[in-house]
Design a protein around this nucleic acid. Structure first.
Length: 217
DNA sequence: ATATCGATTATCT
DNA sequence: GATAATCGATATG
């Protein structure tokens, strides 16, 4: 208990105003911040090393492209809130809403560097310790579906949560990490507007979802 | 190392 | 009825 409490010393929740601009402006500011999940007796945390921007009506790849629906309504709400969707019948993905109410930009969390609660996250992911070096760590949260599973994120539990509220159980903190060098590439895994350079990486991070396709555009 | 494929369901056409 | 912002397994060089 004392262990986990002390880990959060000096970690302050980010301000909602961080999420007010266009997600393309927010992404470089959000890289290097820490995503935190609090359980009853656990603290899970990882540094944000990979994000993708999704825009509004002008972005055919965005869930908001066709306007407001039951699924995507959080995107049209105030900034700094969790939009969680279920995909391929198997995976959850976490986004944070950006821009003012009524505008639907967001950022998809694509990879974390595990920082705290590694054993618990590994167990949730069912990865074993037989692998060496960063391979195990990368398999814990190196991908949008993986990081959601590592932190136990589901739509039912987390959709709509305020990620700037450190009294909640899912929030984003600033631990004073240096301003990161940012690398930009095309987005991954989409068919529409696949060429836009809207994927943002903490440059050189070994914890990104993929090590190839990381060329600077 | 890269390529291809199946899983499995909420959501939208 | 088709699709999807993924992942892990399997096959192949």
């Amino acid at each position: 208990m004392r262990e986990t409490a002390s880990w959060l010393d000096g970690v302050k929740p980010v301000l909602r105003s961080l999420f007010l601009p266009d997600p393309r402006q927010v992404a470089p500011l959000l890289l290097g911040k820490v995503l935190i999940r609090r359980g009853k007796d656990s603290l899970l945390a990882g540094r944000i090393v990979e994000l993708e921007a999704y825009l509004g009506a002008e972005d055919p790849a965005a869930h908001a492209a066709a306007g407001r629906t039951a699924r995507n309504q959080v995107l049209f709400g105030p900034p700094g809130h969790a939009y969680v969707y279920f995909i391929y019948g198997t995976h959850y993905c976490l986004n944070v809403s950006c821009m003012a109410e009524g505008e639907a930009g967001c950022l998809l969390f694509r990879a974390l560097e595990p920082l705290h609660g590694v054993e618990e996250m590994a167990a949730a992911r069912r990865v074993t310790k037989t692998e060496r070096g960063n391979n195990l760590l990368r398999r814990i949260a190196g991908g949008p579906g993986r990081l959601a599973q590592a932190l136990g994120i589901t739509r039912e539990r987390d959709n709509g949560k305020d990620l700037t509220d450190d009294a909640g159980d899912l929030w984003i903190g600033d631990d004073g990490f240096e301003k990161p060098k940012v690398q930009t590439t095309a987005r991954i895994g989409i068919t529409r507007a696949a060429d836009l350079p809207l994927r943002y990486l903490l440059a050189g991070s070994p914890f990104a979802s993929r090590q190839t396709e990381n060329t600077v555009k």
